[in-house]
Design a protein around this nucleic acid. Structure first.
Lengths: 236, 236
DNA sequence: TACTAAATTTAGGCGCGCTTAACTTTTTAG
DNA sequence: CTAAAAAGTTAAGCGCGCCTAAATTTAGTA
């Protein structure tokens, strides 16, 4: 009748930890206690305690003082949460008129409350999208996720190259609103026409824009957050 | 920027208690400890404890050994949860293809996770519906709820009367599925053509149906759960 | 190598919401 | 009117997830 509900029914906290650890791991290496604490906004000892419980449940492996890695089971749940989050973000923007800067918090809360069935209905209604509004790939129902083709932060795209904006973090609404005001959306192509040293700005020329808004200057911190694919061009 | 989030941010349990108490109160009189315990599936002492905390927060008034009543603030929050629940149920059936028997649980979990803003967007997308799929009235944003015109359980509709089905509880999926299989939906009109004593069945004749499915026999328990408005007819 | 700084873990404690067991109050029935 | 039953409350305790303060381990550097 319903093989539906969230399989072993983890707590909201458990789901949050697993997702955060997954995201930290995908930035390379094992996730460290303080990084997890930071990501979740809790004190480090809270992480130590939770890590203990989670490894006893077989969701992750803990090398004391070294960090933590997801087990197969842990990764499965983490990817489920990532899928939920991204489907929800896509649904909210596509079907309910949310802007891309305001979906993160809503999805963050809903991802713990909805059933697998609802997520699949939303995915179906959306035509099984592969990416969320910020360009992040959506894992499939069985936990497959597209390997990102080599994405490079704008800050590392060599001057003179053509590149395309592929992804941006959904975390900072301010940043997203500012991007939108510059005409920077996922999918736009541009040429890097200059970059100043000492954390200075990067200058880009957007493809297919009218004169006025064609050239933009992107500050250092913003440029760090823009994941691009380099289309062609000179090497640094 | 966001006067949005759930005002004082009550816990999931608090919201559940307030909603349950609201629903018990609307069946007349103060809500009793054991009834609340029943409704929430917890032990009576849990209710005593929670009631203490909730009255200290000014959400309800407790007359020891007598029962409990919502304060203005408590009622406001309860009605907010009822609104959320019913908007969610309507949205899920209308926009995501859920059947009326399967929305309750989903809405029950989501109502604690979504923001006011999302509920308003859903309400707008639905054209500000006044009733949910089970016929229950949806409170407005500021906590107004339609007084139900005198609804009578089918079991009390006199034989010979015409009546219309107006509302049914969303609680029991089995019952809802069975109703659907009989062609009983909110809004159908019918004549009560007979009733057996000793908790026997009620016989009805549906208006505007083809011969085969026109006459239906409704068991006692089901008939208790069907809220009707009497259109005309003889008195008992 | 030794000492300090940073990261991590252990210890002790708290609030929430739940439980069972024991006690009190209210209701009901003889 | 009183005794038994039913309903409600208090007491004691548990798990979760959080905290701060105090060890402890690791890493960095003179």
């Amino acid at each position: 009748m319903s093989a539906d509900r969230k399989s072993p029914g983890y707590s909201r906290s458990t789901e949050d930890y697993l997702k955060a650890i997954y995201e930290l791991e995908s930035e390379g290496g094992p996730a460290q206690t303080s990084a997890i604490a930071d990501a979740l906004g809790v004190a480090p000892p809270s992480v130590s305690g939770m890590v203990k419980r989670l490894s006893e449940s077989g969701l992750l492996e803990h090398a004391p003082y070294r960090g933590v890695q997801l087990t197969r089971a842990g990764r499965r749940t983490a990817l489920k949460m990532v899928r939920r989050h991204r489907i929800l973000e896509t649904y909210l923007t596509t079907k309910l008129g949310y802007d891309w800067d305001s979906v993160h918090d809503e999805a963050e809360r809903m991802e713990h409350a909805v059933s697998d069935g609802l997520i699949e209905r939303m995915a179906m209604a959306l035509g099984y999208p592969r990416h969320d509004p910020h360009g992040a790939p959506i894992p499939t129902k069985d936990g497959e996720i597209d390997e990102q083709e080599a994405l490079v932060p704008l800050i590392d795209v060599p001057v003179g190259s053509m590149a395309e904006l592929r992804m941006v973090s959904d975390r900072d609404p301010e940043l997203l609103r500012f991007m939108a005001s510059l005409g920077l959306r996922v999918g736009v192509a541009f040429e890097v026409i200059g970059r100043q040293p000492f954390k200075g700005p990067t200058a880009i020329r957007l493809a297919g824009q009218h004169a006025k808004e064609r050239d933009q200057v992107i500050g250092h911190e913003l440029a760090e957050n823009l994941s691009c694919v380099v289309l062609e061009g000179a090497v640094g």
